[in-house]
């Protein structure tokens, strides 16, 4: 009996490890596309019904922290459907998107990946990120934050069916958000 139990526990752990590996590999591959400016390939990682959303964060008293972030239907920094994401990628490809020409240099670090819920075909995943960027001679920005993704299993990998990006800044300490998170 005890042998059966330990085998089952081991199998569960292995399944969880495999799933963790799949998700983390997906994220590191995604980050590599962004850092290589391969936006056309990157945007294909999103489902057609995706929602790419970065709310505004506000410094609020602890008793009002439920109002810290704006919600969908209010003002945000990103509130994009797939067509809008495709439009952003098309803009970067025009050769006249001056904020990204010369292009900024970015490095995405994705860590603390936690699979919050596995519904079989869809996974709720949270992760932390640091996006380091330099532009031109001396402009330097570091954004830290978390992402809440809905990943949908698709052809042996995933599609991002929802991404909510929560920055750790209220007043944005950068002159634009010309990069993806």
């Amino acid at each position: 009996m005890t042998v059966d139990h330990s085998i089952r526990a081991e199998t569960d752990t292995l399944a969880a490890a495999l799933r963790q590996f799949e998700v983390e590999r997906f994220y590191t591959d995604e980050a590599a596309l962004l850092d290589a400016h391969r936006y056309h390939e990157w945007v294909q990682l999103f489902s057609d019904d995706t929602h790419y959303f970065m709310p505004i964060r506000r410094t609020r008293l602890r008793r009002e922290l439920d109002k810290e972030f704006t919600k969908p239907g209010e003002i945000a920094y990103f509130d994009d459907t797939k067509p809008i994401l495709l439009g952003r990628v098309a803009k970067l490809a025009t050769g006249t998107a001056w904020a990204e020409d010369p292009p900024s240099r970015t490095r995405h670090f994705v860590t603390n990946v936690r699979i919050e819920e596995d519904r079989g075909d869809e996974l709720e995943v949270s992760s932390n990120f640091i996006l380091y960027r330099t532009r031109l001679k001396s402009e330097e920005t570091t954004w830290a934050g978390s992402r809440r993704d809905l990943l949908r299993r698709h052809e042996g990998s995933f599609l991002i069916a929802r991404r909510h990006i929560l920055l750790e800044q209220t007043v944005l300490l950068s002159q634009n958000l010309s990069n993806f998170f």
Partner: peptide
Amino acid sequence: VPGIQKFV
């Protein structure tokens, strides 16, 4: 509308 965008 709730949410004032602020950036530098």
